[in-house]
Design a protein around this nucleic acid. Structure first.
Ligand SMILES: [Mn+2]
Ligand SMILES: [Mn+2]
Ligand SMILES: [Zn+2]
Ligand SMILES: [Zn+2]
Lengths: 137, 137
DNA sequence: TCTGAGTTCTGGACTAAGTCCAAGTTCGGA
DNA sequence: TCCGAACTTGGACTTAGTCCAGAACTCAGA
């Protein structure tokens, strides 16, 4: 009884359109971190005439719903992550590739006296590295 | 015998120009996180005809030398940090303001079995929050 | 099944941040 | 002082993303 991204869009009161279906299908079940343009390319395999604007707007809806995560990495285009359970990321600063870090690492809590009166939502740990491919070149 | 940013540019073999002087002076001694355009505005107070391209290139030189840090925050313009001692950041996701987190927090190390064969350079912790001003509006 | 109001989609224009480059200027070692 | 290498400039360009007016579609209700 796996509920798909598409089912959950419906539950949130969005209309079911061929475009949302295509974007959901492009993301469903994958475990990589795609850019908006990569999502657009995959969605266009299913629905060739889908526009970039619609892909962006659907990605924002899914992010707003908490069904995917939007990852903003250092000067590069954002990437979208269908894995929403708490995890951190390992990033190649040279080519931008991202791996999940699933186990054994928890972000330390922010001491209250450092909070500057701000409401802290979450702490994320980003590991900056260089991948094998980039090291070789 | 405090060595200024400018002195250190000289030590790295760069020529001393009025433009580098102006950028160094714009950054020296401050403890806030300026965007490139803000640095340009401050530098232009000292040297009105300085160009954006030169400010960008000087910021990159200083970053390359390790004399300032380039902070890339979620979809916004990069910010430049003259404080290079290890510290983390607390970011308002709504307006982009950044505070330093100096004490009591260390990023956890990445377990070897999670490294995907990559050479990890550093771990940073980013605290995502909403500042008082943004909460009020 | 049909309708229509409200939702959604489209494509193209637009913006913001940053990069690139050819031409002119300046620095500083000899 | 001289001169080549280093540097700066301003404007064109790129990339990622936003915005919008008009056209198309969805789905609740009759
Ligand atoms: Mn992930
Ligand atoms: Mn800082
Ligand atoms: Zn890489
Ligand atoms: Zn704020």
């Amino acid at each position: 009884m796996h509920t798909s991204l598409l089912d959950r869009l419906r539950l949130h009161g969005y209309r079911l359109t061929a475009q949302r279906r295509a974007v959901a299908e492009a993301l469903d079940g994958i475990n990589v971190h795609l850019t908006a343009d990569e999502v657009h390319a995959r969605a266009a395999d299913i629905l060739p005439e889908i526009s970039r604007a619609t892909v962006y707007s659907t990605l924002h809806e899914l992010t707003e719903m908490g069904e995917i995560l939007e990852l903003g990495i250092e000067g590069r285009s954002k990437r979208y992550d269908p894995t929403t359970s708490p995890h951190n990321h390992l990033v190649c600063d040279s080519c931008g590739v991202i791996h999940d870090v699933q186990h054994g690492v928890a972000a330390p809590e922010l001491p209250l006296n450092e909070a500057h009166g701000m409401a802290v939502r979450r702490a994320e740990v980003v590991y900056h590295a260089t991948c094998g491919t980039c090291l070789a070149s």
